[in-house]
Design a protein around this nucleic acid. Structure first.
Lengths: 247, 247
DNA sequence: TTTAACGGTGTAATTTTCACACCTTATATT
DNA sequence: AATATAAGGTGTGAAAATTACACCGTTAAA
């Protein structure tokens, strides 16, 4: 696969050229690809970019970028997410590394998959993204288009890990507004797990964990009985989690 | 951290030289480090190498090596394990990728952690290892020495993942001889989880899974009542596991 | 024959999970 | 004012899974 190895650092890729077969490939590069999940209108969505250059011009792809020489993987993930969305201080979490030899047509690119769960509404407009992407869009996970490279595989891998993790850790709260109703929370669980849950059992269980804080405030602007609002109580969760660890 | 970047491919590192501060560093390299678990004399052990060269000369380290240009990560893991132990066709499984900028004193090395669980006794003598290692030794996980680089962190990360996985998947059988007693199996679980388990409950539960095959053969050469031997029945397990996936 | 060491078994209490249906409350509509 | 609409909110019983717990049996060696 490698053609004429060239130095990659600070090298600006010319994708069009390589397609005409007269162009640079690179030897070994590290990248990060991000699964950024959001929840909107009762649907679980993921942030995709529309590629502006070859290869896979006009295709949808996961947002990702190359890891710089002087930044750790975690730092790179944070930076890339920031560059793509303007969001900072999220919990980006690594889930798998993809290293098939031919996964990138231009050379050896090993990529580390990270995911983050974010609030779609709590965020400003998506910032203009890097030059290789035309725009970034939220796309429902249930009807994803074909993705560039092996990004569909990356998505499937990460999504299934998030599903599994949901049963053990309260990761869903990052997707909801700070104050939420139990019905919203249940809808989110149903969207992630892709199945219906029983309302009474779900509430009983969630409340039994003890990390939900009931607010006096109620839902507003709905044309039906307003529901109680809850907050995720990080302190209580931390206490519970610590006990689990020491036990 | 990077000094004078040099081409690394096929470059033979001179570790002594670098220590005297007149030597090569490299830009960006991918490596694999392996956690190879074995079970012997009731103890959970891990395979370590004794380093023969700087840096960390004479220290213990995880067996690992650099990923070649034309091999996938999984292939590299298989190859490296083979080179170190002579073992083939094991299930090497990726668990985490470590990418701190300064984790390697000579340059940027991003390493993917893999683990494997193997039978210590079912194997020939450990094959002579790569040149950078003096020898390979099995070391009880409960009294690990300080390890080179960030290998202690890698170990902790991988070990805790294996612990968690043990509760959901029958990964322990790879550590036992093909035929084993329930007491041996329980001892292994206790070694991995680092706690005592109740004999009756343990047996009840294991047998309830339905993937253990009772043999007519019994234990031999023991100075007490011989126990029944069991086999792990992959077929039955596959059937059970498939049902879980579709459910 | 005795002893040491492990093999092998069952039951009851507790906790967790699951299935299941109706009345209440707030707003919008007529 | 009456009514319709849409979601809020609540409890119980059955079944399954988990936990705690103790003694006799068998084998080989002393």
């Amino acid at each position: 696969m490698p053609v004429k190895p060239i130095k990659l650092i600070n090298y600006k890729l010319n994708y069009n050229a390589i397609l005409e077969d007269k162009l640079p490939s690179f030897e070994s590069v590290f990248s990060i690809d991000c699964l950024i999940f959001g929840f909107e209108a009762g649907e679980l969505k993921i942030l995709l970019i529309e590629r502006n250059d070859e290869p896979f011009k006009d295709w949808f792809a996961l947002p990702g970028d190359i890891v710089k020489q002087d930044e750790s993987l975690d730092d790179a993930a944070d930076r890339i997410l920031y560059e793509l969305t303007g969001l900072r201080d999220l919990q980006m979490k690594q889930f798998h590394t993809f290293g098939e030899v031919n996964r990138h047509p231009q050379g050896r690119v090993i990529t580390v998959g990270y995911y983050a769960l974010i609030r779609i509404n709590g965020q400003k407009e998506l910032r203009p993204v890097t030059q290789y992407a035309r725009k970034a869009v939220w796309h429902p996970v249930n009807s994803l288009p074909k993705l560039a490279f092996d990004h569909t595989e990356i998505f499937n891998n990460g999504f299934s890990k998030i599903r599994r993790r949901l049963n053990h850790q309260p990761i869903a709260f990052d997707l909801l507004p700070e104050k939420f109703t139990l019905t919203q929370l249940q809808g989110l669980y149903e969207a992630i797990l892709n199945k219906k849950l029983d309302k009474r059992n779900f509430r009983k269980k969630m409340l039994s964990y003890g990390f939900l804080k009931e607010l006096v405030e109620k839902q507003k602007g709905v044309s039906y009985r307003a529901a109680k609002l809850y907050k995720f109580d990080k302190r209580k969760y931390a206490k519970i989690f610590q006990n689990e660890l020491t036990a």
